[in-house]
Design a protein around this nucleic acid. Structure first.
Lengths: 113, 113
DNA sequence: AGCAATGCATTGGTTTCTTATGTATCTTTG
DNA sequence: CAAAGATACATAAGAAACCAATGCATTGCT
């Protein structure tokens, strides 16, 4: 089962920021694979969604980048800036709050496992 | 505090379906007010978002409508069809699943209250 | 009488994602 | 060793879903 794409909307940026917070330094392809792993294939971030998102984070000064070469293959690593760290806490806590609200609204018991 | 609009994306349809399931028969303006009440103003559904959504639900056969006149003012009431009831269960359970996944991914404790 | 609230609806624009495509390198396998 | 698949970046065209603004009309309050 893969979640319908509407659900991903609005959470992608937060997911990326949180992963960067936890792992300090990651490159794009690694992020797609990590999310896939962590969610048991339920969330599959497409590259067409991820790269534009990463570029926006960079433009907004939330991440810095550096290139690393393994042989001739290049990897573009992303790291949270100080502003990015603050923003991550904001976004994660907003999402947590939103999820509590949704839980109440939909009368969902989130801990079914 | 009002949630950033990206968060609403993808959940609006589910919210509307769930409200209709709980209340059986509601009109548009009532839905906006109910959501505002239930979420302590944190989620404010705009009319420009709600009405197109309701129209899509109707086109898809998930709801039926009937008009009621209070004096000269008209209200368009929405009621779940049998397909709508099934769809509601699907969407709510998908969202519950998604929220559990996000909780795990973001290491969020959803029950802070 | 005038303003806020109620109640419907549409339009234009933006954001955000999908699908498709393009380029290039590295690894595995028959 | 050739082909295929995985790795790794990126962009472009289009769709979906929402926002902000606007419009129209009725009702209630002051």
């Amino acid at each position: 089962m893969i979640y319908s794409s509407e659900l991903i909307k609005g959470t992608l940026k937060t997911i990326v920021l949180k992963l960067l917070e936890d792992n300090n330094r990651m490159y794009g392809y690694e992020i797609t694979q990590r999310v896939k792993e962590l969610t048991f294939d339920k969330i599959q971030i497409t590259e067409g969604a991820l790269y534009p998102t990463l570029h926006v984070l960079e433009e907004d000064g939330l991440v810095t980048t550096d290139l690393e070469y393994n042989g001739k293959r290049v990897r573009k690593y992303y790291t949270l800036s100080p502003e990015g760290k603050n923003k991550t806490k904001e976004k994660v806590s907003e999402l947590a709050d939103f999820m509590n609200t949704m839980k109440f609204l939909l009368d969902i018991n989130t801990q079914t496992a």
